[in-house]
């Protein structure tokens, strides 16, 4: 397990990444550049309290014989650069919330704002990772990542350099020309994360991205993700079923309950960063896990002896 944590010198330095942001003509990257500059992340969070603001957002689906209230009156603010996890029982509307925020589904009521733009169509400049990697089977790993730049009409040379950099950061530098079928599930998901990050989006939405992976790969990808996040300083909304994953990654955990889907509790995680896998055995970590578990117990989602992951 020597490569469980990739060393800093294996990853490209932060200055080269910042250099890419400077070259980018993308206005949304300006904010990223500022943040990567002098202002520290915690300062920034306090200045821009609500990068994302969700107000009274509801969503119902009209089914064949019933109306499903997937989300009811959700209020949520997410600060710039914050890592927020959403956890809740199956069918409580987590994916729906993500789709609404991405502007891929219209809300039934309420308002949502990302940055200074109200959501009323596909939200530009965000990255999405789903549980399935949805890599295009006819493109190599590098080409899959570059798809993002092609669709957005960005400069090919700069994008290629950045794609290679991102893939190297998740240990895939030797697999640039491999087709998806030649990659393992974990490697495929890493490619899809790189694709989501190619255009340096200020917001990354992830819907159970590690749900289909084995425990070991999952640990590795959590580490990879946190490293990418600390380098890029983007805001992350991360949907998961795993309590320990949520505690390990997040600044805050949004606990949802179902029928109708609503926010039950928001738990702030005050664990130091950078997070290390060994932290998962500390009493503080376990206390947070118990706190989340307790919410599920009061909701009746969990009954006794089932208080572990998933």
């Amino acid at each position: 397990m020597s490569s469980l944590r990739i060393t800093e010198d294996a990853a490209p330095s932060q200055s080269t990444l910042r250099g890419w942001f400077k070259r980018s003509s993308n206005p949304a990257c300006g904010a990223v550049l500022n943040r990567a500059g002098a202002v520290s992340q915690s300062d920034y969070v306090s200045i821009h309290k609500d990068y994302i603001s969700i107000r009274g957002t509801s969503k119902s689906f009209v089914g064949r014989n019933a109306v499903v209230h997937a989300l009811s009156e959700v209020d949520l603010d997410i600060a710039d650069g914050e890592f927020v996890s959403v956890i809740g029982p199956s069918g409580c509307g987590k994916s729906t919330l993500l789709m609404l925020l991405a502007g891929l589904e219209p809300a039934s009521s309420g308002t949502m704002r990302v940055g200074n733009k109200n959501v009323d169509g596909p939200t530009p400049d965000l990255g999405i990772v789903f549980q399935q990697d949805v890599l295009l089977e006819w493109r190599t790993a590098l080409q899959n990542v570059l798809l993002q730049a092609e669709i957005r009409g960005q400069d090919k040379t700069a994008a290629t350099a950045r794609a290679k950099e991102l893939l190297a950061m998740v240990g895939l530098q030797n697999f640039l020309d491999a087709y998806p079928y030649e990659l393992s599930g974990g490697m495929r998901q890493r490619v899809s994360i790189c694709r989501a990050l190619l255009h340096a989006p200020p917001l990354l939405l992830m819907d159970e991205p590690f749900g289909a992976l084995d425990a070991l790969t999952r640990d590795q990808l959590q580490i990879d993700l946190l490293r990418l996040w600390s380098k890029q300083k983007m805001t992350v909304m991360f949907i998961t079923h795993s309590i320990s994953e949520a505690v390990f990654l997040s600044d805050r955990i949004v606990v949802m309950s179902s029928r109708p889907g609503r926010i039950e509790e928001i738990i702030k995680i005050d664990l130091p960063r950078p997070r290390r896998l060994s932290m998962r055995e500390t009493p503080e970590f376990l206390a947070y896990m118990q706190k989340v578990t307790a919410v599920f117990k009061t909701l009746g989602v969990l009954r006794d002896e089932e208080g572990d992951d998933e």
């Binding site: 991405a102 891929l104 939200t123 789903f130 399935q132 949805v134 798809l147 993002q148 092609e150 669709i151």
Partner: peptide, 26 residues
Amino acid sequence: PPQMLHLARSMGASSWQIFFRFRLPQ
């Protein structure tokens, strides 16, 4: 898969791009 089309739309792909880069090769 629906998620592939969601992804395409989130990238801001036009209908033409969705057809020629996603649906047709698939």
